[in-house]
Measured scan of single mutants.
Amino acid sequence: SSYVCVECNFLTKRYDALSEHNLKYHPGEENFKLTMVKRNNQTIFEQTIN
């Protein structure tokens, strides 16, 4: 599966890399929402900020 930060167009295969991205680029933000999307037999988790 892949993880994408929709706000930044940041894409990674690792959830911990997304967490690091959030700490660096969205410090103090807590209203993240992950949406699971299936595309071409791949699972993509799209992160948006509410």
Rank of each mutant, 00 (worst) to 15 (best):
Q47K: 02
F10N: 04
N9K: 15
H26V: 01
C5I: 00
V6M: 05
E30V: 11
S1P: 00
H26Q: 00
S2E: 04
L18Y: 05
L18Q: 02
L11F: 12
L23G: 15
S19P: 09
E30F: 15
E7M: 07
R14P: 14
P27T: 11
K38H: 09
F45G: 13
Y3G: 02
S2Q: 05
H26C: 00
V37M: 08
H21C: 00
V6H: 11
E46N: 12
A17W: 08
Y15T: 11
E7I: 10
N22H: 02
E46K: 09
L18S: 01
E30M: 06
A17I: 13
E46M: 02
E7C: 09
N41P: 09
R39Y: 03
N50M: 05
A17E: 14
K24P: 00
V6F: 08
E29H: 10
L18A: 02
S1Y: 03
R39F: 03
N50C: 01
K24Q: 15
R14Y: 04
S2M: 07
Y15D: 15
T12F: 09
N50R: 05
E29A: 10
K33A: 09
N50I: 03
N9C: 04
I49R: 13
D16A: 13
K24R: 08
V37S: 09
K24M: 07
N41S: 09
N40Y: 03
T43G: 10
N41R: 08
K24I: 09
N41I: 10
H21D: 00
Y15E: 15
H26L: 00
N31V: 02
E46I: 01
A17N: 06
Q42V: 10
D16L: 11
F10M: 10
N9A: 08
H21S: 01
K33C: 07
C5G: 00
P27L: 07
S19V: 05
Q47S: 06
N50D: 14
I49D: 15
V37Y: 04
R14I: 15
S2N: 10
S1L: 05
E30G: 12
R14F: 15
L23N: 15
G28A: 09
E20I: 05
N22G: 01
N50V: 11
L34V: 12
T48S: 07
N31E: 07
V37A: 09
T12M: 13
I44L: 14
N31H: 04
Y25V: 10
Q47D: 01
R14W: 14
C8M: 00
N9P: 11
L18W: 04
M36G: 15
K33H: 05
V4S: 13
G28I: 02
E30H: 10
A17F: 14
K13Q: 11
C5D: 01
Y3M: 07
I44M: 11
C8H: 15
E29N: 11
N50P: 07
N40K: 05
C8S: 01
N31C: 02
K38T: 07
K38L: 04
F10W: 12
K24E: 07
T12L: 07
T43L: 07
Y25N: 13
M36C: 13
F32C: 14
S2R: 04
V4E: 10
F32E: 03
N31P: 08
C8T: 01
T43V: 13
S1N: 06
F32I: 15
F45Q: 13
N22M: 03
Y3C: 02
V37H: 03
D16T: 10
E30W: 05
K13L: 14
I44Y: 07
V6A: 08
K13W: 12
Q47C: 03
K13M: 09
S2D: 04
E7G: 14
N40W: 02
R39S: 12
I49F: 11
N22D: 05
N31K: 09
N22L: 01
I44S: 13
I49K: 11
N40S: 09
I44R: 11
M36S: 11
S1A: 02
T48Y: 03
G28W: 03
K38F: 02
R14D: 13
L23S: 11
Q42M: 11
V6P: 03
Q42K: 15
N40V: 05
K33V: 06
V6W: 01
E7A: 10
N22T: 06
T12D: 10
V6R: 05
L11C: 12
C5S: 01
H26F: 03
Q47E: 01
L11E: 11
F45A: 14
E46D: 06
Y15C: 00
V6D: 03
R14S: 15
E46W: 01
I44G: 04
N9I: 07
D16G: 08
A17G: 13
T48A: 10
D16R: 07
G28D: 05
E46L: 02
E46A: 02
Y25D: 14
V37N: 15
T43A: 14
G28Q: 13
V6Y: 07
H26N: 00
R39M: 10
S2W: 11
C8W: 00
N9T: 09
M36I: 05
F45Y: 15
E20F: 09
S19H: 02
M36A: 12
Y3V: 03
E30T: 11
C8D: 15
V6E: 03
E7L: 08
K38Q: 12
K33S: 09
R39I: 05
T48V: 12
L23K: 05
Y25C: 05
D16W: 09
F45T: 15
K38S: 08
G28S: 14
